[in-house]
C-alpha cells in the first residue's frame, strides 16, 4: 500500500489527518492547474475548494487500482469545465485576469533558483491553446498518463498525444521568442 492509499484510507475513515496529508501534498499541483486553466486566482481558489470537496463526497467511488492524483485531476478538470460552461467568462475579463496572474502568481514564500525562467515558462504556457494547455498541465503537473488524459478529456489517445506534441513545439517557440534557446 503506498502513502497515498494510507492517507486515503484515513480520509475515508473520517480522519482529518488523512485529508490534510493529501491536501498539503497535492494542493500546489492542483492549484497550479486550476490557476493556469482559468487565469484567475480567486476562481482557481474556489475551484480548488470545490475539487477537494467533490473528492471528499465521492471518495467511495474512487477505484483504488487507479492513481489518486490522476483521479483528483480528473475532478479538477470537471470543475473547470463546469466553471466555463456556467460562468461564460468574457474575453476582456480574462485579459484582466491574465494580467493579474503575472503579479499574483509569484508566491513570496517560494524561493526559486531561477525566478525569471519560471515566469517565462508560465507565460509560454499561458499562450497555448486551452486544449493543448490542459493536456500539457495534466501530464506535467498531474503526472497523468496519456491513456488517462484521453479518458479525462474524452478524446482518443492520439488526439491527446498530438495536443501534447504541439504544446511542446509552441512552448519551445515562445521560449525562443523570449531569448531561451533549446540547449540547456
Amino acid at each position: 500500500m503506498n502513502e497515498d492509499q494510507k492517507l486515503f484510507d484515513l480520509w475515508l475513515g473520517g480522519k482529518p489527518s488523512g485529508f490534510s496529508g493529501l491536501y498539503d501534498k497535492y494542493k500546489n499541483r492542483v492549484f497550479g492547474f486550476l490557476l493556469r486553466m482559468t487565469g484567475d486566482r480567486e476562481i482557481a481558489e474556489d475551484l480548488l475548494q470545490e475539487t477537494f470537496l467533490a473528492a471528499l463526497r465521492n471518495a467511495d467511488q474512487f477505484d483504488r487500482s487507479r492513481n489518486f492524483l490522476s483521479w483528483l485531476f480528473g475532478i479538477a478538470h470537471k470543475r473547470t469545465i463546469d466553471f466555463f460552461r456556467h460562468a461564460k467568462v468574457e474575453s476582456d475579463h480574462k485579459e484582466d485576469a491574465e494580467t493579474a496572474i503575472g503579479s499574483k502568481i509569484e508566491a513570496p514564500d517560494q524561493q526559486l533558483s531561477n525566478q525569471s525562467l519560471r515566469k517565462v515558462i508560465n507565460e509560454a504556457v499561458e499562450e497555448l491553446d486551452p486544449l493543448q494547455r490542459e493536456v500539457f498541465l495534466l501530464r506535467e503537473l498531474g503526472g497523468v498518463a496519456f491513456k488517462e488524459i484521453a479518458v479525462i478529456m474524452d478524446c482518443p489517445i492520439n488526439t491527446a498525444l498530438g495536443r501534447m506534441r504541439l504544446a511542446l513545439k509552441n512552448i519551445r517557440k515562445e521560449l525562443k521568442k523570449r531569448g531561451i534557446d533549446g540547449v540547456q
Binding site: 491536501y23 494542493k27 500546489n28 499541483r29 492549484f31 497550479g32 490557476l35 493556469r36 482557481a44 481558489e45 480548488l48 475548494q49 477537494f52 470537496l53 502568481i105 508566491a107 514564500d109 517560494q110 526559486l112 525562467l117 519560471r118 515558462i121 508560465n122 504556457v125 498541465l137 506535467e140 503537473l141
Partner: peptide
C-alpha cells in the same frame, strides 16, 4: 512542480 504549480493562500488552506 515548483515552476508550474502554485500555492493557494493560507486563508484558502484553512478554509478548505
Amino acid at each position: 512542480i515548483e515552476a508550474l504549480g502554485a500555492a493557494p493562500s493560507e486563508k484558502v488552506d484553512l478554509e478548505v
